[in-house]
Design a protein around this nucleic acid. Structure first.
Length: 484
RNA sequence: CGGGGCGUGGUGUAACGGCUAACAUGCUUGACUUGGGAUCAAGUGACUCCGGGUUCGAAUCCCGGCGCCCCGACCA
Protein backbone atom coordinates (compact mmCIF):
# COMPACT_ATOMS: atom_id res chain seq x y z
CA UNK A 1 0.00 0.00 0.00
CA UNK A 2 1.53 3.26 -1.05
CA UNK A 3 1.76 6.42 0.98
CA UNK A 4 0.05 8.25 -1.86
CA UNK A 5 -3.21 6.87 -0.58
CA UNK A 6 -3.12 9.55 2.05
CA UNK A 7 -3.78 12.03 -0.72
CA UNK A 8 -6.88 10.31 -1.92
CA UNK A 9 -10.27 10.96 -0.49
CA UNK A 10 -10.78 8.58 2.37
CA UNK A 11 -14.53 8.43 1.91
CA UNK A 12 -13.97 6.97 -1.49
CA UNK A 13 -11.33 4.50 -0.36
CA UNK A 14 -12.79 3.33 2.90
CA UNK A 15 -16.12 1.81 2.14
CA UNK A 16 -17.80 -1.52 2.49
CA UNK A 17 -15.69 -2.67 5.39
CA UNK A 18 -17.95 -5.60 6.09
CA UNK A 19 -17.44 -6.97 2.62
CA UNK A 20 -13.73 -6.30 2.49
CA UNK A 21 -12.53 -5.71 5.99
CA UNK A 22 -8.86 -6.33 5.26
CA UNK A 23 -8.78 -3.70 2.58
CA UNK A 24 -10.56 -1.23 4.80
CA UNK A 25 -7.98 -1.83 7.48
CA UNK A 26 -5.04 -1.49 5.09
CA UNK A 27 -6.47 1.77 3.86
CA UNK A 28 -6.62 3.10 7.41
CA UNK A 29 -2.98 2.17 7.94
CA UNK A 30 -1.94 3.80 4.68
CA UNK A 31 -4.05 6.92 4.93
CA UNK A 32 -3.05 7.59 8.54
CA UNK A 33 0.58 7.21 7.49
CA UNK A 34 1.38 4.49 10.03
CA UNK A 35 3.26 1.90 8.00
CA UNK A 36 3.84 0.36 4.59
CA UNK A 37 5.32 -2.81 3.14
CA UNK A 38 9.05 -2.89 2.56
CA UNK A 39 10.85 -4.47 -0.40
CA UNK A 40 10.91 -7.95 1.16
CA UNK A 41 7.51 -9.59 1.17
CA UNK A 42 5.97 -9.59 4.63
CA UNK A 43 8.47 -7.13 6.09
CA UNK A 44 6.91 -3.89 7.27
CA UNK A 45 8.29 -0.37 7.37
CA UNK A 46 6.86 1.41 10.41
CA UNK A 47 6.66 5.13 9.74
CA UNK A 48 7.26 7.76 12.41
CA UNK A 49 3.59 8.33 13.15
CA UNK A 50 3.03 4.60 13.64
CA UNK A 51 6.23 4.07 15.56
CA UNK A 52 5.22 6.76 18.06
CA UNK A 53 2.36 4.48 19.12
CA UNK A 54 4.81 1.67 19.74
CA UNK A 55 7.14 3.97 21.69
CA UNK A 56 4.29 5.00 23.94
CA UNK A 57 3.45 1.35 24.54
CA UNK A 58 7.08 0.64 25.36
CA UNK A 59 7.26 3.51 27.78
CA UNK A 60 4.17 2.45 29.70
CA UNK A 61 5.19 -1.21 29.80
CA UNK A 62 8.68 -0.39 30.99
CA UNK A 63 7.24 1.55 33.91
CA UNK A 64 5.06 -1.40 34.85
CA UNK A 65 7.93 -3.84 34.52
CA UNK A 66 10.10 -1.77 36.81
CA UNK A 67 7.36 -1.67 39.41
CA UNK A 68 7.32 -5.45 39.50
CA UNK A 69 11.09 -5.94 39.61
CA UNK A 70 11.62 -6.91 35.98
CA UNK A 71 14.94 -5.82 34.46
CA UNK A 72 15.65 -5.21 30.79
CA UNK A 73 18.46 -7.10 29.05
CA UNK A 74 19.40 -8.09 25.52
CA UNK A 75 20.29 -11.42 23.97
CA UNK A 76 21.63 -12.25 20.48
CA UNK A 77 19.44 -12.46 17.42
CA UNK A 78 21.31 -15.56 16.17
CA UNK A 79 20.71 -18.85 17.88
CA UNK A 80 22.65 -22.08 17.23
CA UNK A 81 20.24 -24.43 15.55
CA UNK A 82 20.85 -27.18 18.10
CA UNK A 83 19.39 -25.02 20.88
CA UNK A 84 16.03 -25.07 19.23
CA UNK A 85 16.06 -28.86 19.08
CA UNK A 86 16.32 -29.30 22.82
CA UNK A 87 12.65 -28.93 23.64
CA UNK A 88 10.48 -31.26 21.58
CA UNK A 89 7.22 -29.30 21.42
CA UNK A 90 9.09 -26.05 20.89
CA UNK A 91 10.94 -27.27 17.82
CA UNK A 92 7.76 -28.76 16.39
CA UNK A 93 5.96 -25.47 16.86
CA UNK A 94 8.59 -23.21 15.39
CA UNK A 95 10.63 -25.22 12.88
CA UNK A 96 8.31 -24.52 9.94
CA UNK A 97 8.69 -20.76 10.28
CA UNK A 98 12.27 -20.11 11.29
CA UNK A 99 14.71 -18.30 9.02
CA UNK A 100 18.08 -20.06 8.90
CA UNK A 101 21.48 -18.53 8.17
CA UNK A 102 23.68 -21.06 6.40
CA UNK A 103 26.34 -18.82 4.89
CA UNK A 104 28.24 -15.89 6.35
CA UNK A 105 31.53 -14.16 5.71
CA UNK A 106 31.64 -15.77 2.31
CA UNK A 107 31.71 -19.27 3.76
CA UNK A 108 29.32 -22.00 4.61
CA UNK A 109 28.81 -22.16 8.36
CA UNK A 110 29.75 -25.33 10.20
CA UNK A 111 26.54 -25.09 12.12
CA UNK A 112 23.52 -23.17 10.80
CA UNK A 113 22.22 -20.28 12.87
CA UNK A 114 18.56 -19.54 13.21
CA UNK A 115 17.19 -16.02 13.40
CA UNK A 116 15.25 -15.94 16.67
CA UNK A 117 11.53 -16.56 16.33
CA UNK A 118 11.46 -16.10 20.14
CA UNK A 119 14.27 -16.28 22.67
CA UNK A 120 13.40 -19.02 25.14
CA UNK A 121 16.22 -21.27 24.00
CA UNK A 122 19.10 -18.83 23.93
CA UNK A 123 18.01 -17.14 27.15
CA UNK A 124 17.54 -20.34 29.11
CA UNK A 125 20.84 -21.74 27.95
CA UNK A 126 22.32 -18.59 29.47
CA UNK A 127 20.11 -18.70 32.56
CA UNK A 128 21.44 -22.17 33.35
CA UNK A 129 24.83 -20.55 33.91
CA UNK A 130 23.44 -17.57 35.82
CA UNK A 131 21.43 -19.57 38.33
CA UNK A 132 23.01 -21.75 41.00
CA UNK A 133 21.16 -21.11 44.22
CA UNK A 134 17.64 -20.29 45.39
CA UNK A 135 19.24 -16.94 46.30
CA UNK A 136 19.53 -16.22 42.55
CA UNK A 137 15.76 -16.47 42.24
CA UNK A 138 13.44 -15.16 41.11
CA UNK A 139 15.20 -14.12 37.93
CA UNK A 140 13.06 -11.53 36.13
CA UNK A 141 14.29 -10.53 32.67
CA UNK A 142 12.67 -8.69 29.79
CA UNK A 143 14.03 -7.86 26.39
CA UNK A 144 12.82 -5.52 23.66
CA UNK A 145 13.66 -7.08 20.36
CA UNK A 146 12.76 -7.93 16.82
CA UNK A 147 11.91 -11.51 16.00
CA UNK A 148 11.41 -13.29 12.70
CA UNK A 149 8.74 -15.82 11.81
CA UNK A 150 8.45 -16.68 8.15
CA UNK A 151 4.68 -16.55 7.94
CA UNK A 152 2.91 -17.78 4.85
CA UNK A 153 0.41 -14.98 4.71
CA UNK A 154 1.56 -11.68 6.17
CA UNK A 155 -0.81 -8.92 7.21
CA UNK A 156 0.44 -5.47 8.03
CA UNK A 157 0.83 -5.01 11.81
CA UNK A 158 -1.02 -8.26 12.53
CA UNK A 159 1.33 -10.84 11.11
CA UNK A 160 4.58 -9.57 9.64
CA UNK A 161 7.64 -11.66 8.94
CA UNK A 162 9.72 -9.50 11.23
CA UNK A 163 8.03 -7.88 14.19
CA UNK A 164 8.92 -5.92 17.29
CA UNK A 165 7.95 -7.08 20.74
CA UNK A 166 8.96 -7.41 24.32
CA UNK A 167 9.48 -10.86 25.69
CA UNK A 168 9.73 -11.38 29.42
CA UNK A 169 11.33 -14.50 30.86
CA UNK A 170 11.34 -15.43 34.51
CA UNK A 171 12.59 -18.31 36.68
CA UNK A 172 11.07 -19.15 40.06
CA UNK A 173 11.51 -21.53 42.96
CA UNK A 174 8.00 -22.87 42.95
CA UNK A 175 5.26 -23.68 40.55
CA UNK A 176 2.76 -21.42 42.26
CA UNK A 177 5.11 -18.47 42.24
CA UNK A 178 5.69 -18.95 38.51
CA UNK A 179 2.00 -19.24 37.81
CA UNK A 180 1.37 -16.13 39.89
CA UNK A 181 3.88 -14.22 37.81
CA UNK A 182 2.34 -15.38 34.55
CA UNK A 183 -1.04 -14.21 35.81
CA UNK A 184 0.38 -10.93 37.10
CA UNK A 185 1.88 -10.07 33.72
CA UNK A 186 -1.43 -10.92 32.06
CA UNK A 187 -3.09 -8.38 34.34
CA UNK A 188 -0.53 -5.76 33.32
CA UNK A 189 -1.35 -6.43 29.68
CA UNK A 190 -5.05 -6.18 30.46
CA UNK A 191 -4.45 -2.84 32.12
CA UNK A 192 -2.62 -1.54 29.03
CA UNK A 193 -5.28 -2.87 26.68
CA UNK A 194 -8.27 -1.53 28.56
CA UNK A 195 -7.03 1.60 30.28
CA UNK A 196 -4.53 2.87 27.74
CA UNK A 197 -5.68 1.52 24.38
CA UNK A 198 -9.36 1.37 25.31
CA UNK A 199 -9.59 -2.17 23.96
CA UNK A 200 -11.79 -4.44 26.09
CA UNK A 201 -10.23 -7.88 26.45
CA UNK A 202 -11.26 -11.25 27.78
CA UNK A 203 -8.64 -13.07 29.80
CA UNK A 204 -8.46 -16.81 29.98
CA UNK A 205 -6.55 -20.01 29.40
CA UNK A 206 -5.78 -21.42 25.99
CA UNK A 207 -6.89 -24.92 25.11
CA UNK A 208 -4.04 -27.43 24.75
CA UNK A 209 -4.03 -27.25 20.99
CA UNK A 210 -3.82 -23.45 21.00
CA UNK A 211 -1.14 -23.08 23.63
CA UNK A 212 2.45 -21.95 23.07
CA UNK A 213 4.88 -24.58 21.78
CA UNK A 214 6.54 -25.96 24.90
CA UNK A 215 4.33 -24.29 27.48
CA UNK A 216 2.53 -25.97 30.35
CA UNK A 217 -0.25 -23.38 30.28
CA UNK A 218 -0.90 -20.37 28.07
CA UNK A 219 -2.97 -17.42 29.22
CA UNK A 220 -4.16 -14.87 26.71
CA UNK A 221 -6.16 -11.71 26.21
CA UNK A 222 -8.69 -11.78 23.42
CA UNK A 223 -10.12 -8.66 21.83
CA UNK A 224 -12.94 -8.34 19.32
CA UNK A 225 -12.34 -6.42 16.13
CA UNK A 226 -15.08 -4.58 14.27
CA UNK A 227 -15.73 -7.49 11.93
CA UNK A 228 -16.36 -9.74 14.94
CA UNK A 229 -13.10 -11.63 14.60
CA UNK A 230 -10.91 -12.21 17.62
CA UNK A 231 -7.40 -10.86 17.97
CA UNK A 232 -4.99 -12.24 20.52
CA UNK A 233 -3.70 -9.09 22.16
CA UNK A 234 -0.88 -10.64 24.15
CA UNK A 235 0.02 -13.90 25.87
CA UNK A 236 1.61 -15.08 29.07
CA UNK A 237 2.87 -18.62 29.55
CA UNK A 238 3.44 -20.78 32.54
CA UNK A 239 6.22 -22.94 31.14
CA UNK A 240 6.35 -25.37 34.04
CA UNK A 241 9.70 -27.14 34.06
CA UNK A 242 9.73 -28.15 30.39
CA UNK A 243 12.44 -25.75 29.35
CA UNK A 244 14.27 -25.94 32.67
CA UNK A 245 14.75 -29.65 32.11
CA UNK A 246 15.79 -29.19 28.48
CA UNK A 247 18.29 -26.42 29.27
CA UNK A 248 19.39 -27.49 32.71
CA UNK A 249 18.06 -24.47 34.55
CA UNK A 250 18.74 -25.82 38.07
CA UNK A 251 19.34 -24.43 41.53
CA UNK A 252 20.14 -25.66 45.02
CA UNK A 253 17.22 -25.07 47.34
CA UNK A 254 17.25 -24.31 51.06
CA UNK A 255 17.50 -28.03 51.83
CA UNK A 256 20.57 -28.33 49.65
CA UNK A 257 18.83 -30.39 47.01
CA UNK A 258 18.98 -29.72 43.30
CA UNK A 259 15.70 -28.46 41.80
CA UNK A 260 14.66 -27.45 38.32
CA UNK A 261 13.39 -23.88 38.00
CA UNK A 262 9.77 -23.02 37.27
CA UNK A 263 9.58 -20.64 34.36
CA UNK A 264 7.33 -18.14 32.62
CA UNK A 265 7.47 -16.14 29.43
CA UNK A 266 5.17 -13.39 28.24
CA UNK A 267 5.07 -11.11 25.26
CA UNK A 268 3.33 -8.21 23.61
CA UNK A 269 4.09 -7.26 20.02
CA UNK A 270 3.49 -4.57 17.41
CA UNK A 271 0.37 -6.59 16.62
CA UNK A 272 -1.32 -4.62 19.39
CA UNK A 273 -1.03 -1.53 17.21
CA UNK A 274 -3.01 -3.44 14.60
CA UNK A 275 -5.59 -4.23 17.26
CA UNK A 276 -5.75 -0.61 18.22
CA UNK A 277 -6.43 0.44 14.65
CA UNK A 278 -9.02 -2.25 14.04
CA UNK A 279 -10.91 -1.60 17.25
CA UNK A 280 -11.55 2.12 16.98
CA UNK A 281 -11.17 3.27 13.37
CA UNK A 282 -14.15 4.55 11.42
CA UNK A 283 -14.86 5.54 7.84
CA UNK A 284 -12.92 8.77 8.21
CA UNK A 285 -9.74 6.96 9.25
CA UNK A 286 -7.89 6.23 12.44
CA UNK A 287 -9.32 7.02 15.88
CA UNK A 288 -6.78 7.11 18.69
CA UNK A 289 -7.53 6.89 22.40
CA UNK A 290 -6.00 10.00 24.05
CA UNK A 291 -3.70 8.04 26.33
CA UNK A 292 -1.81 6.43 23.47
CA UNK A 293 -2.07 9.27 20.94
CA UNK A 294 1.26 10.95 20.24
CA UNK A 295 -0.69 14.10 19.38
CA UNK A 296 -3.71 14.58 21.63
CA UNK A 297 -4.82 17.97 20.38
CA UNK A 298 -4.08 19.71 17.13
CA UNK A 299 -4.56 23.46 16.85
CA UNK A 300 -5.66 24.30 13.31
CA UNK A 301 -5.47 27.93 12.34
CA UNK A 302 -8.01 29.57 10.07
CA UNK A 303 -6.72 32.67 8.29
CA UNK A 304 -9.37 34.28 6.05
CA UNK A 305 -7.40 37.46 5.47
CA UNK A 306 -3.68 37.99 5.39
CA UNK A 307 -3.73 40.79 7.95
CA UNK A 308 -4.84 38.36 10.66
CA UNK A 309 -2.18 35.74 9.99
CA UNK A 310 0.43 36.87 12.45
CA UNK A 311 -2.11 37.49 15.17
CA UNK A 312 -3.73 34.07 14.77
CA UNK A 313 -0.44 32.21 14.57
CA UNK A 314 0.73 33.94 17.69
CA UNK A 315 -2.46 33.03 19.52
CA UNK A 316 -2.05 29.43 18.37
CA UNK A 317 1.45 29.34 19.82
CA UNK A 318 0.20 30.76 23.11
CA UNK A 319 -2.44 28.06 23.26
CA UNK A 320 0.12 25.44 22.41
CA UNK A 321 2.40 26.49 25.25
CA UNK A 322 -0.51 26.68 27.67
CA UNK A 323 -1.53 23.11 26.83
CA UNK A 324 2.03 21.77 26.89
CA UNK A 325 2.47 23.20 30.37
CA UNK A 326 -0.68 21.36 31.39
CA UNK A 327 0.85 18.12 30.13
CA UNK A 328 -1.17 17.82 26.93
CA UNK A 329 0.62 16.45 23.85
CA UNK A 330 -0.25 19.12 21.34
CA UNK A 331 0.65 20.32 17.86
CA UNK A 332 0.04 23.48 15.85
CA UNK A 333 -0.95 23.27 12.19
CA UNK A 334 -0.54 26.77 10.80
CA UNK A 335 0.13 25.72 7.23
CA UNK A 336 -1.19 28.05 4.58
CA UNK A 337 -3.82 25.69 3.19
CA UNK A 338 -7.58 25.68 3.39
CA UNK A 339 -8.97 24.63 6.75
CA UNK A 340 -10.99 21.73 5.37
CA UNK A 341 -7.85 20.10 4.11
CA UNK A 342 -6.31 20.28 7.56
CA UNK A 343 -9.42 18.83 9.20
CA UNK A 344 -9.47 15.82 6.92
CA UNK A 345 -5.81 15.17 7.40
CA UNK A 346 -5.92 15.14 11.21
CA UNK A 347 -9.08 13.11 11.21
CA UNK A 348 -7.35 10.47 9.12
CA UNK A 349 -4.53 10.48 11.64
CA UNK A 350 -6.95 9.98 14.49
CA UNK A 351 -6.04 12.95 16.67
CA UNK A 352 -8.58 12.95 19.55
CA UNK A 353 -9.33 16.69 19.67
CA UNK A 354 -9.07 19.38 17.04
CA UNK A 355 -8.94 22.97 18.23
CA UNK A 356 -10.11 25.41 15.57
CA UNK A 357 -8.72 28.88 15.90
CA UNK A 358 -9.82 31.67 13.58
CA UNK A 359 -10.40 35.42 13.80
CA UNK A 360 -13.89 35.01 15.27
CA UNK A 361 -12.48 32.84 18.07
CA UNK A 362 -9.61 35.15 18.81
CA UNK A 363 -11.96 38.13 18.88
CA UNK A 364 -14.23 36.46 21.42
CA UNK A 365 -11.30 34.98 23.36
CA UNK A 366 -12.51 31.47 22.70
CA UNK A 367 -11.81 28.36 20.60
CA UNK A 368 -13.84 25.61 18.97
CA UNK A 369 -13.19 22.03 20.15
CA UNK A 370 -14.08 19.10 17.89
CA UNK A 371 -13.83 15.56 19.23
CA UNK A 372 -12.74 12.86 16.84
CA UNK A 373 -14.82 10.00 18.24
CA UNK A 374 -18.25 11.62 17.87
CA UNK A 375 -17.53 14.68 15.73
CA UNK A 376 -19.26 16.82 18.34
CA UNK A 377 -18.26 20.50 18.46
CA UNK A 378 -18.13 22.64 21.58
CA UNK A 379 -17.09 26.21 22.14
CA UNK A 380 -14.75 27.00 24.99
CA UNK A 381 -13.24 30.17 26.42
CA UNK A 382 -9.52 30.66 26.93
CA UNK A 383 -9.85 30.66 30.69
CA UNK A 384 -11.53 27.25 30.80
CA UNK A 385 -9.64 25.74 27.87
CA UNK A 386 -7.19 23.55 29.78
CA UNK A 387 -9.87 22.17 32.05
CA UNK A 388 -12.20 21.51 29.13
CA UNK A 389 -9.50 19.79 27.12
CA UNK A 390 -8.55 17.53 29.99
CA UNK A 391 -12.09 16.48 30.72
CA UNK A 392 -12.79 16.00 27.04
CA UNK A 393 -9.71 13.79 26.67
CA UNK A 394 -10.88 11.67 29.61
CA UNK A 395 -14.33 11.54 28.17
CA UNK A 396 -13.07 10.36 24.76
CA UNK A 397 -10.86 7.73 26.37
CA UNK A 398 -13.83 6.43 28.34
CA UNK A 399 -16.24 6.62 25.44
CA UNK A 400 -13.99 4.62 23.12
CA UNK A 401 -13.69 1.86 25.69
CA UNK A 402 -17.40 1.75 26.42
CA UNK A 403 -18.24 1.83 22.72
CA UNK A 404 -15.96 -1.11 22.01
CA UNK A 405 -17.24 -3.01 25.04
CA UNK A 406 -20.88 -2.48 24.07
CA UNK A 407 -20.08 -3.65 20.58
CA UNK A 408 -18.47 -6.81 21.89
CA UNK A 409 -21.36 -7.46 24.27
CA UNK A 410 -23.83 -7.09 21.44
CA UNK A 411 -21.81 -9.54 19.37
CA UNK A 412 -21.34 -12.17 22.05
CA UNK A 413 -23.86 -14.98 21.91
CA UNK A 414 -24.57 -17.79 24.32
CA UNK A 415 -25.72 -20.79 22.32
CA UNK A 416 -26.74 -24.35 23.10
CA UNK A 417 -27.45 -25.93 19.76
CA UNK A 418 -25.20 -26.72 16.83
CA UNK A 419 -27.40 -24.86 14.32
CA UNK A 420 -27.33 -21.71 16.43
CA UNK A 421 -23.59 -22.14 16.84
CA UNK A 422 -22.88 -22.33 13.13
CA UNK A 423 -25.09 -19.31 12.46
CA UNK A 424 -23.55 -17.24 15.25
CA UNK A 425 -20.04 -17.97 14.02
CA UNK A 426 -20.96 -17.12 10.45
CA UNK A 427 -22.33 -13.78 11.60
CA UNK A 428 -19.00 -12.94 13.24
CA UNK A 429 -19.76 -13.29 16.93
CA UNK A 430 -17.95 -14.41 20.02
CA UNK A 431 -19.80 -17.56 20.91
CA UNK A 432 -20.07 -18.87 24.45
CA UNK A 433 -20.66 -22.58 24.21
CA UNK A 434 -20.06 -25.78 26.12
CA UNK A 435 -17.09 -27.94 25.23
CA UNK A 436 -16.11 -31.07 27.04
CA UNK A 437 -12.37 -30.67 26.56
CA UNK A 438 -11.90 -33.15 23.74
CA UNK A 439 -9.18 -32.20 21.31
CA UNK A 440 -10.62 -33.97 18.29
CA UNK A 441 -13.99 -32.24 18.76
CA UNK A 442 -12.21 -28.90 18.88
CA UNK A 443 -10.45 -29.75 15.63
CA UNK A 444 -13.70 -30.88 14.04
CA UNK A 445 -15.42 -27.61 14.95
CA UNK A 446 -12.54 -25.68 13.42
CA UNK A 447 -12.74 -27.77 10.30
CA UNK A 448 -16.47 -27.29 9.87
CA UNK A 449 -16.89 -23.64 10.88
CA UNK A 450 -13.46 -22.01 10.93
CA UNK A 451 -13.96 -21.15 14.60
CA UNK A 452 -11.34 -21.89 17.22
CA UNK A 453 -11.45 -21.77 20.99
CA UNK A 454 -10.12 -18.33 21.78
CA UNK A 455 -9.87 -19.05 25.47
CA UNK A 456 -11.43 -20.71 28.45
CA UNK A 457 -12.34 -17.50 30.27
CA UNK A 458 -11.30 -16.99 33.88
CA UNK A 459 -14.52 -15.15 34.47
CA UNK A 460 -17.15 -17.83 34.18
CA UNK A 461 -19.80 -19.47 36.26
CA UNK A 462 -19.77 -23.18 36.87
CA UNK A 463 -22.59 -24.54 34.83
CA UNK A 464 -23.17 -28.07 33.73
CA UNK A 465 -24.12 -28.61 30.13
CA UNK A 466 -23.42 -30.64 27.03
CA UNK A 467 -20.70 -30.07 24.46
CA UNK A 468 -22.12 -28.11 21.54
CA UNK A 469 -20.76 -30.64 19.06
CA UNK A 470 -20.28 -33.99 20.75
CA UNK A 471 -22.96 -33.78 23.45
CA UNK A 472 -20.48 -34.93 26.09
CA UNK A 473 -20.89 -33.47 29.58
CA UNK A 474 -19.21 -30.12 30.24
CA UNK A 475 -18.79 -27.92 33.29
CA UNK A 476 -18.46 -24.53 31.68
CA UNK A 477 -18.53 -22.43 28.55
CA UNK A 478 -15.57 -21.46 26.40
CA UNK A 479 -15.30 -18.70 23.79
CA UNK A 480 -15.35 -19.73 20.16
CA UNK A 481 -14.68 -17.27 17.34
CA UNK A 482 -12.95 -16.81 14.07
CA UNK A 483 -9.65 -15.13 14.61
CA UNK A 484 -6.80 -13.23 13.03
C1' C B 1 1.53 -24.46 -1.21
C1' G B 2 -3.86 -24.71 -3.16
C1' G B 3 -8.40 -21.56 -5.13
C1' G B 4 -9.86 -16.80 -7.27
C1' G B 5 -8.72 -11.77 -9.16
C1' C B 6 -5.25 -8.35 -11.28
C1' G B 7 -0.63 -5.88 -13.51
C1' U B 8 -1.46 0.94 -18.15
C1' G B 9 2.01 8.40 -16.11
C1' G B 10 3.72 9.32 -8.88
C1' U B 11 -1.57 7.58 -7.46
C1' G B 12 -6.67 5.77 -8.97
C1' U B 13 -8.82 4.20 -13.43
C1' A B 14 -10.34 4.04 -19.11
C1' A B 15 -9.50 2.37 -24.06
C1' C B 16 -13.97 -3.29 -29.92
C1' G B 17 -7.33 -6.39 -32.25
C1' G B 18 -7.05 -0.23 -35.62
C1' C B 19 -6.09 7.64 -35.17
C1' U B 20 -0.59 10.83 -31.48
C1' A B 21 -2.80 5.35 -25.25
C1' A B 22 -7.68 8.80 -22.63
C1' C B 23 -9.76 10.75 -17.89
C1' A B 24 -9.23 12.10 -12.85
C1' U B 25 -5.92 13.19 -9.17
C1' G B 26 -1.00 14.57 -7.71
C1' C B 27 3.28 17.60 -8.66
C1' U B 28 5.45 22.69 -10.76
C1' U B 29 4.41 28.02 -11.93
C1' G B 30 0.98 32.05 -11.69
C1' A B 31 -3.72 34.33 -10.39
C1' C B 32 -7.58 34.30 -7.02
C1' U B 33 -8.74 32.44 -2.29
C1' U B 34 -9.11 30.42 3.24
C1' G B 35 -15.02 28.66 9.28
C1' G B 36 -15.00 21.16 5.80
C1' G B 37 -10.73 18.36 0.67
C1' A B 38 -11.94 25.46 -3.74
C1' U B 39 -11.52 27.61 -8.66
C1' C B 40 -9.06 29.25 -13.26
C1' A B 41 -4.77 29.22 -16.62
C1' A B 42 -0.25 27.11 -18.25
C1' G B 43 3.14 23.18 -17.56
C1' U B 44 5.06 18.19 -15.92
C1' G B 45 4.52 13.23 -16.25
C1' A B 46 3.77 5.90 -19.50
C1' C B 47 9.22 1.67 -23.87
C1' U B 48 1.00 -0.23 -21.14
C1' C B 49 5.51 -5.75 -15.47
C1' C B 50 9.33 -8.97 -18.27
C1' G B 51 10.37 -12.56 -22.41
C1' G B 52 8.49 -15.03 -26.53
C1' G B 53 4.45 -15.92 -30.14
C1' U B 54 -0.11 -14.98 -33.48
C1' U B 55 -1.29 -10.70 -36.80
C1' C B 56 -0.76 -5.92 -42.06
C1' G B 57 -1.49 -4.10 -36.96
C1' A B 58 -1.30 -6.07 -29.74
C1' A B 59 -2.33 -2.45 -23.61
C1' U B 60 -6.02 -5.87 -25.72
C1' C B 61 -5.39 -12.69 -28.14
C1' C B 62 -1.90 -17.17 -26.92
C1' C B 63 2.46 -19.41 -24.11
C1' G B 64 6.15 -18.79 -20.25
C1' G B 65 8.12 -16.00 -16.24
C1' C B 66 7.93 -12.26 -12.36
C1' G B 67 5.04 -9.35 -9.03
C1' C B 68 0.67 -7.73 -6.31
C1' C B 69 -4.28 -8.37 -3.92
C1' C B 70 -8.18 -11.53 -1.79
C1' C B 71 -9.69 -16.41 0.28
C1' G B 72 -7.65 -21.11 2.74
C1' A B 73 -3.62 -24.06 5.51
C1' C B 74 0.13 -21.66 9.50
C1' C B 75 0.49 -17.94 13.28
C1' A B 76 1.82 -13.09 18.17
Amino acid sequence: MSSELKNNKVEKKITGRNEDYSQWYLDIVASADLAEWGPVKGCMVIKPYGYALWEKTQQILNEKFKETGVQNAYFPIFIPEKFLNKEKDHIEGFAPEVAVVTHAGGKKLDEPLIVRPTSETIMYETFSRWIHSYRDLPLLINQWANVVRWEMRPRIFLRTVEFLWQEGHTVHETESEADGRARQMLEIYKDIAENIMAIPVITGTKSDSEKFAGAFKTYSLEAMMQDGKALQFATSHNLGQNFAKAFDVKFLDKNNTVQYGWQTSWGLSTRTIGGLIMTHSDDKGLVLPPKIASIQTVITTIVPSEKDREMINQKAQELNILLKKAGVRTHVDSRDIRPGEKYYEWEKKGVPIRIELGPRDVASDSAMLVRRDTGEKTKTTMSSLVGDINSLLNNIQQNLYVRALDYRKAKTKKVDSWDEFVKAIEEGNFVLAHWSGEKNVEAQIKEETGATIRCIPFDQTNESGKCIKSGMPSTGRVIFAKSY
